[in-house]
Write a protein that binds this DNA or RNA. Structure first.
Lengths: 345, 345
DNA sequence: AAACAGAACTAAAGCGTTTATGTAGAGGAG
DNA sequence: CTCCTCTACATAAACGCTTTAGTTCTGTTT
């Protein structure tokens, strides 16, 4: 059936050990035997068995990919997809393949992430955060398995994490609006219990304070990151006694909803009201007007994640965390505070 | 270190075989021993070793995911991402995990897909097509490993494939335009050597013929599926002696480019020129005007792929292929042929 | 010439499972 | 009471690789 080391050894007239050593680049093998054995392997189409190798050596060269959220953000989350794309490239280059664990039932336990990791004996894993984290992911954080979290704080001995500096997300938006002359900014946030939304909101409040700007509570709304909630929040804002002239939505989709609401209200973006989103999803630059938004550096995060995980696995570093700077993509949906007045005068 | 069957067996006072049988639900084990052993496994936190199990049984419960294209479409291809998302859910439910092979160097060979599959001993694999297929994927098609191709024709004994019915893609667009009164339709296709683009174009020609409509060669342009090429193609079309009133672009991004070109030319969509795209990417409904486009049923494809692969693995079916019907998403970018004239009169 | 060192290789145990084969004991048929 | 059939287990080999601890041989040193 399968061509094994044993057969190669027999054909080459050497021992299994020698063949194994050739495969693994040991030094104590003669040049000529090496050539002869390699030739036979080539001819016979020898393929090493991953399971046998793993069983014997305990090394898999496999990285587990865990989605920690209760709702399966899966593949189609714009930010995580970009991160993973880069991560896969980098970690692949370093010699690892990726294992995606199914979210469905597993041996004995339903959502036992650690069990999955131990089962496959992964060399390390990457944990994708998000909202509504399942507690059981922290079991692998605490285990000796090296792991890197994206948008989730891992504090284990062999863990590290990466996330966008969400404080800077808010501060860049506030600064941009401030420079455009805006003095009041409305905020459409994510779910109240979302960690990230929380950081952004408190950063927003803090930075506003630094610029000496007030934050009226009626100017703060909560959505769910999706379009409809942005639409509804904006409707409410438009019906406030003094509607805002500048809005910061914590996701692009909510910003889309907000723009829709503004248009329906007979106003123009950005002439009457400026809107800034967050994420820079691909649609952002195609809508009307092209959306000013905050872009997370997903490439850099994916790249760093791969490198950090590699170093963690090889004991080159200890537990670390890094905050990655976001970038403000200035497009057409944000404009000066008084353009309307100026045009009207 | 690791808790093994052996230890469980010793603790329970039974043989390894008995423990193994309990894990694998064999019938010849007494109820009370079963309970006792399960309890001990639970207490000791026993986790089966995948590699040992695989080595002994030859079954991995792992599906390999192969991207067959030379350019790494990776995770962020809108259509394939949706397909994979559904596929992962379904196949996970059936008890399989997913292995993504890195595109980078591998043992001995650079791009030897079959080697990867044999190395990991996958139970089956899913092959993601696209443009510029690497010949070596057909090695696994021809091998006894069950595989399902998405947008790639696999004809092996243990293979099957799924793709959108690209004939219908063209025919639905032509029919829609025909019903709106259009009699001439311009076509902006993909790369000349792209299989899928080719099917769509010849289907376009054929269906146009069925409706008795002419296809002037100057109304057929080739792009590369990206925005810029759609923009350039449209520019050319606009400068034709008789510019078209209806355009079918073989990708949404090219449609975006075309719309941009039309706007810059001082014309309106759809009043002056109608545009239809293909893919229904998320941005399509957000642009101005919302794009009429053809949607591939990625959920259905992912779902079917999982089921077919499962049946192939378990010898419930033989080689099969299915064409999945696309859906025309009618939005605002396509309108009646003579609206301009009507409005002008 | 004896002793030794290093290079090139081998033997065999071990990794954690599965599984074919074997067997002890209980119960039923004759 | 013996023989047979089940049931409920046990034994041990096998899976394909790695790795430790040798072993053999060649060449150098004293």
């Amino acid at each position: 059936m399968r061509i094994t080391i044993k057969e190669i050894a027999k054909l080459a007239g050497v021992s299994q050990a020698t063949v194994s050593k050739i495969i693994n680049n040991y030094q104590d093998v003669g040049e000529d035997t090496k050539k002869r054995v390699l030739k036979i392997m080539e001819e016979k189409g020898y393929r090493p068995s991953h399971s046998a190798k793993t069983l014997a050596s305990k090394v898999t060269n496999v990285i587990g990919v865990l989605y920690a959220g209760k709702v399966n953000v899966g593949f189609n989350h714009p930010f995580f997809v970009d991160v993973m794309d880069m991560f896969k490239k980098k970690i692949g280059y370093l010699g690892y393949d990726l294992m995606f664990f199914s979210n469905e039932k597993f041996f004995l336990d339903e959502e036992d992430y650690l069990a999955r990791c131990l089962h496959y004996n992964v060399d390390g894993c990457i944990i994708i955060g998000g909202e509504d984290i399942q507690e059981s992911v922290y079991d692998v954080d605490k285990s000796p398995i090296p792991c890197i979290g994206i948008d989730i704080k891992l504090t284990g001995e062999q863990s590290g994490y990466l996330m966008t500096d969400n404080y800077k997300v808010s501060s860049k938006v506030v600064e941009h609006y401030y420079l455009l002359g805006h003095r009041e900014i409305a905020y459409i946030g994510g779910k109240k219990d979302s960690v990230i939304a929380d950081i952004r909101l408190s950063a927003f409040r803090e930075v506003m304070g630094q610029y000496g700007l007030p934050v009226r509570e009626e100017m703060v709304k909560y959505g769910d990151f999706f379009e409809g909630s942005g639409y509804r929040a904006m409707k409410e804002l438009l019906h406030a006694p003094v509607p805002p002239k500048a809005v910061f939505a914590a996701s692009d989709l909510m910003a889309f909803g907000a723009i829709q609401a503004i248009k329906e209200h007979g106003l123009k973006v950005p002439d009457d009201i400026s809107v800034i989103g967050c994420d820079d999803i691909s649609a952002a630059k195609h809508i009307d007007p092209p959306l000013t938004t905050v872009r997370q550096d997903s490439e850099r995060i994916g790249n760093l994640a791969a490198r950090m995980l590699f170093d963690l696995i090889n004991h080159r570093i200890n537990s670390t965390s890094v905050m990655v700077e976001p970038e403000l993509m200035v497009r057409k949906s944000s404009g000066p505070a008084y353009s309307q007045t100026l045009m009207g005068s």
